[in-house]
Design a protein around this nucleic acid. Structure first.
Lengths: 315, 315
DNA sequence: CTGAAAGCGCTTACAG
DNA sequence: CTGAAAGCGCTTACAG
């Protein structure tokens, strides 16, 4: 008797109302992805990985921006949330949270005593990147970033300034002011164009992300400055496009796939069992050396800015 | 008296429960973004634009994959949805929908009699792209795509095959089988590597999207084949990276920003007033000619595959 | 202006 | 195994 009713309901296209169900079960089958800037390449990359992880499950993904005075009308209707690089305090949320943070150990900010957290060590790889540039003989090494990544808690900046200090070289900071949602390359290009025409060219440029690095490519190309022979470029993130640039971009790889998989496991475990002990995991970023960082200095092949760009031989 | 209670509630950190509110108001303040493959570059691009549009509003965005036998446990809890290139029938949904579709007018599929729909005319720009390659003198022009974009309803394929037929040239189809969620460049590279070593090199390659075009770059570079002098490459989508490739990628630009803005307006208007008459809008794609499509043929500059790739002069 | 009641569409426990 | 009741946390309309 009961079966007949259920069958008939399905036949008539009945689907249960999720919010009503959620109200009584306490489960929404939704998970939030919280980023300070949802449109950044790194946020996009993480989103894509989380989409892949969510797809075989019954969870839908909600993308939420944590920055900007957005009026959130009530508790987010999610069973759990990932927070990238920002404090959950901003968002009304009464559910398990996994945070993905840059490891700030050793800084004044201290170790955050969170429950479930993934830490990414960027400082070690940044040190390796700067040392690599120093070993190639570069002396004038500039650090380019947005204001956010230009402070003493920031692992990239810390590694950079510590290494230069140790080598007895001057720090050269280039701050690029970027609106959070805009395409960064052209604005970086413009900022660096101005800078280069006033200050000349550094031997090497350490960029706080790959978008900025490609903005630097644009600016250097405009001046006919050869990469990496005259000015080397180092990115950070190592997004999918990095090997396809000419020259292929050296970068610091964030293990995005591993981070997301681990975060996903932490969160689903926490949802199933809120009494679980705190979960923590540390990931290392890794220096990926391609062509763009192989500085040769002024004494290198002296073929100047003549011939049109060619696509030969990069395979 | 009442004010005091409300103040006290806020002070204690009370936030109303969204699902309970949604159950009674019928509004969830959520909007769904539905894509056949959520991780494709075009889906990412559209998502980013919709994020920007949603940010100042009170809506949160839910990203949903319409392909793959995902068990959706109940009605999606959204006030409205965008559907890109796929039928809403797959997803349980009782709410306003705006569809974003490739314009198939003139094909056997006919004009879909939907309520609110945005149509993108890809065929005209595709014709322009093929004619551009023909005018440059290319005779052997191949079309590279996934199986999905290799059928007679597909505007790119229709334009391609019609133009070649008209010019009395043979059609050359290269099908690349790609898993939906994987990074396409390397797999395209491999498929084309095989193809080129068996069939030799076309004069020009018309790719159904930019990712495939960059896979083609990789394969051509591997053989030391010069782009565009020996083999020209044409992409489709014109993503942000297109001008930064070497040589800069010619492509067919989808007006993603305009599409998203228009779709957003349609949907919010429909949510506010369900009795609105059907809304429709047509957008044209546009051929963007950069360097990669400027074929010169065998009689061009005969400098062979010697020198290492250089980044000079592209600015 | 405040307070009590009804009801949104479900699920869960409990009585028949 | 089926049916009626209670209740999830809100909002809305209605009575005081």
């Amino acid at each position: 008797m009961r079966q007949r009713i259920l069958k008939e309901a399905e036949a008539q296209g009945y689907v249960p109302n999720r919010m009503a169900r959620a109200l009584v079960t306490g489960r929404t089958n939704q998970i939030a992805l919280c980023f300070p800037v949802v449109t950044s390449p790194l946020a996009q990359d993480l989103s894509r990985q989380f989409q892949k992880l969510a797809h075989p499950t019954s969870y839908d993904l909600l993308t939420v921006s944590t920055e900007g005075a957005r009026h959130h009308s009530g508790l987010l209707a999610v069973d759990g949330a990932f927070f990238f690089g920002s404090a959950p305090e901003n968002i009304p949320l009464h559910c398990p949270v996994v945070e993905i943070l840059l490891d700030l150990r050793g800084t004044s900010a201290g170790f955050p005593p969170r429950q479930d957290v993934i830490l990414v060590n960027l400082e070690k790889a940044s040190r390796a990147a700067i040392n690599h540039l120093l070993e190639r003989g570069a002396r004038r090494i500039a650090y380019v970033s947005t204001p956010t990544a230009m402070n003493s808690c920031e692992p990239r900046y810390r590694a950079y300034s510590a290494a230069l200090r140790k080598a007895g070289l001057p720090v050269e900071k280039i701050t690029v002011n970027l609106p959070p949602d805009e395409f960064h390359r052209e604005l970086t290009h413009q900022a660096l164009e101005k800078y280069f025409s006033r200050q000349g060219f550094p031997d090497a440029i350490f960029c706080s992300n790959d978008e900025i690095a490609i903005g630097a490519y644009r600016a250097l190309r405009q001046f006919g400055r050869r990469i990496p022979e005259e000015t080397a470029v180092m990115g950070c993130h190592d997004y999918d496009e990095a090997p396809d640039h000419v020259p292929p971009l050296s970068s610091i790889r964030l293990p995005v796939n591993d981070i997301c998989r681990c975060a996903w496991e932490m969160l689903t475990a926490r949802i199933q069992n809120p009494a679980l002990p705190p979960q923590q995991q540390l990931f290392d970023a890794q220096l990926i050396v391609r062509q763009s960082s192989l500085w040769k200095g002024p004494s290198s092949t002296s073929s100047p800015r003549t011939r049109e760009s060619s696509n030969v031989g990069a395979g």
